[in-house]
Amino acid sequence: MRNLLNFLLRYNNLIVFLILEGFSLILLTGKNEYHNSRMVKTMTGITRGFDERISNARNYFNLRDINSKLALENALLRNSLKQMAGDGDRMIVEVNDTTNHQVYHYISAKIINNSVNKQKNYFTIDKGTLQGVRVDMAVTSGNSVAGIIVGCSENFSVAISLLNLDFRVSARIKTNGYFGSLSWDGHSYRTAVLNDIPQHISVSVGDTIETTSYSAIFPEGIGIGTVTDVKPSGSDFYFIRVGLFTDFKKLAYVDVIGSLKRTERLGLENKFQ
C-alpha cells in the first residue's frame, strides 16, 4: 500500500497527463467525423489482418473434412453417371422459348476497314441491312466493347469506334456497381477514361469496368477494361484511366448485338421524358 502511494505520488504528473491526453483523444475520435473514420479504418485494418490469418489456419485444419466430403460426392456422381449411361433410350427434348426469353441476337462480322490514329475513328464491317444489321446496334469483340453501328448500307455497315471523341458509354465498376460515363480522351489507343465516379467510393487499380444495362444498346456486363490509374481530379470526382480489353490495332472479327426489345423499351421510356 505504502509502495503504491509512493508510486502514485512520484508519477502523479504523468498520470494526470495520461488521463487528460486520453480524454482529449476520446473526445477527438468520438466527436469528429474525420478522426473517427480514420480511427475505425485503422482498427478494422488491424483486426482484418488477424481475422484473415485465423480463418486461413482454420481452413487448413478443415481440409481433411472437405476432402472426404468431396470423395463421397465423387462416388455418388459416378454412380448416377453409370445409371444414366445405361438408360440409353430416354429422349431429351430441349425447348427454347425465343419470344419470351431471348433479348439479344448476335451477328458475327469481319472488320474490313479500321483506324486507331485519328481523333474520331470509325471502322467498317462486312455485314449490312440484308444480314440484319441496324443502326444503334452494339459491336463487341470477344465479349468486350468495340463500338456502335452508326450507318448501314445493304452489305456494309460503319461503326463508331470506342476510340472516338464522340463515343460515350455508361460503364460501372464491377465490384461495387457504381456507374459513370466512359469516353476516350484521344491519347493512347490502349486506354480510355471513366468519369463521374465520386470520391467517397474506393476504387483500386485492377478493378474491372463493364457496361451497364442503362443504354439499351449494350447488354449488361460486357467487359470494357481494367483500372490502371486512379487519381482525384479537381472536383469531387475521380479521374480513372481504364486499360481497354480490346486491342483495336488487331481487331479482326466482331459480334454485332441487337436488342430485340429495344423499340419497346425506348417507346416506353420516351413517353415519360
Partner: peptide, 15 residues
C-alpha cells in the same frame, strides 16, 4: 468546433 484537438496539444505542451 473540433473537440479534443487543441486540448490534446495544449496538454502535451503543459506536460
Amino acid at each position: 468546433g473540433s473537440p479534443g484537438m487543441h486540448a490534446s496539444a495544449t496538454v502535451m505542451a503543459g506536460f
